[in-house]
């Protein structure tokens, strides 16, 4: 069985991803600690956005509640580490990370059956509800310590600066997420998801097993989101329900795709980069009005380029192709 349906473009994308990741891994050498922290924000945003894209971008099932997996992942990891006193930091972290990913996969599997039957906006709203329910549970059940807060173990090696360490950790996770997204996109699963996005009824008549495909994408997306959430939580060091079940995790991942190009893998990465740069660097000194300007920019972009930056490039590419063809005649 071939892993990739469209092998050549898959391998090209993988090579570009690895080269890009290597380049970004070298960046901290040239950046101030503040610059590295901005880098962290970008890499976190890109990883979360691509994890969201595996379901939302490929199949068109937009989740408005991915914070559920960020937060649940963070708290599962924190509570497991609490239960493993005396373990080495690396050992406890590994167990906590794997358990958080597994449990979030399971959570997605359990809620997928009822809510992936909903289409379009109904699924989006149901996921918003799921993230709200997870937040309330973690906040209100004392044993889960969402209100009180919980410390995570320190996993930074002695001779590495923490901001660099977490930059690299988030970069590694984001790279893994992007590689997995590329594998999904170019596999049979990916083609099936695209067919579902274009027209679910047509997909069914073409023989695409829509229910198992949607559930698989949802579970993968949840596990990858949880992975990002676990590392983010360690970066914070101390978490409460409010610090990880954040509404901006629900919304920003969608904004990045809208900005960069919905349904593509490069789109959310570019979108995350542009948004992070604009909000943290360009408008870094204008904290009072930066949300206002960000909102304005978004409104302009969505009106001017409804298919995002990738859409602009795509239109240009199509025009070039057509010109080339006509010139060839």
């Amino acid at each position: 069985m071939k892993l990739f349906v469209s092998g050549r473009s898959a391998w090209v994308s993988i090579a570009i991803t690895l080269a890009g990741a290597l380049l970004f891994a070298l960046l901290p050498a040239f950046l101030s600690p503040y610059g590295v922290r901005v880098g962290q924000l970008f890499v976190l945003a890109a990883g979360l956005a691509v994890a969201w894209t595996v379901l939302g971008g490929f199949s068109g099932y937009w989740s408005f509640g991915n914070a559920a997996f960020v937060g649940t992942g963070a708290f599962v990891a924190a509570l497991i580490e609490l239960a493993l006193p005396g373990w080495s930091p690396a050992g406890a972290f590994t167990v906590a990370l794997l358990a958080a990913m597994l449990l979030n996969g399971l959570l997605a599997l359990v809620i997928a059956w009822p809510i992936l039957r909903l289409r379009g906006i109904y699924f989006a709203i149901a996921m918003l509800g799921v993230s709200q329910v997870c937040y309330e549970l973690v906040s209100n059940i004392d044993a889960l310590r969402g209100a009180l807060g919980v410390n995570l173990i320190d996993i930074v090696p002695k001779d590495v600066r923490p901001e660099r360490f977490y930059y690299w950790a988030l970069l590694l996770a984001a790279t893994a997420i992007i590689l997995i997204a590329i594998c999904v996109r170019h596999s049979k699963l990916g083609y099936g998801l695209l067919a579902i996005r274009e027209d679910e009824d047509t997909a069914r008549m073409l023989g695409v097993p829509t229910a198992p495909y949607k559930i698989s994408a949802f579970v993968i997306s949840a596990m990858l989101t949880a992975m990002m959430g676990v590392i983010y939580a360690h970066n914070l060091g101390y978490i409460t329900a409010n610090s990880v079940f954040r509404n901006e995790f629900n919304l920003n991942v969608i904004v990045y795709s809208l900005l960069g190009g919905m349904g593509t893998i490069i789109g959310p990465i570019v979108g995350a980069g542009v948004m992070t740069y604009v909000t943290q660097v360009l408008l870094g000194d204008l904290l009072d009005i930066h949300m206002f300007i960000t909102g304005l920019l978004l409104a302009i972009l969505v009106l001017a380029a409804p298919n995002g930056l990738y859409g602009i490039y795509d239109t240009y590419r199509l025009r070039l192709k057509r010109q080339k063809r006509e010139a060839g005649r």
Binding site: M1, V5, Y191, L194, A195, E198, L206, G207, V208, G263
Partner: peptide, 23 residues
């Protein structure tokens, strides 16, 4: 009801992938 963003080949390939042809 083709898939508009895909090439002709990719569209047809989806039919083949989920049809009765072996991988």
């Amino acid at each position: 009801k083709p898939f508009p963003g895909m090439s002709v080949t990719e569209n047809v390939r989806i039919g083949a992938l989920f049809g009765r042809a072996g991988p």
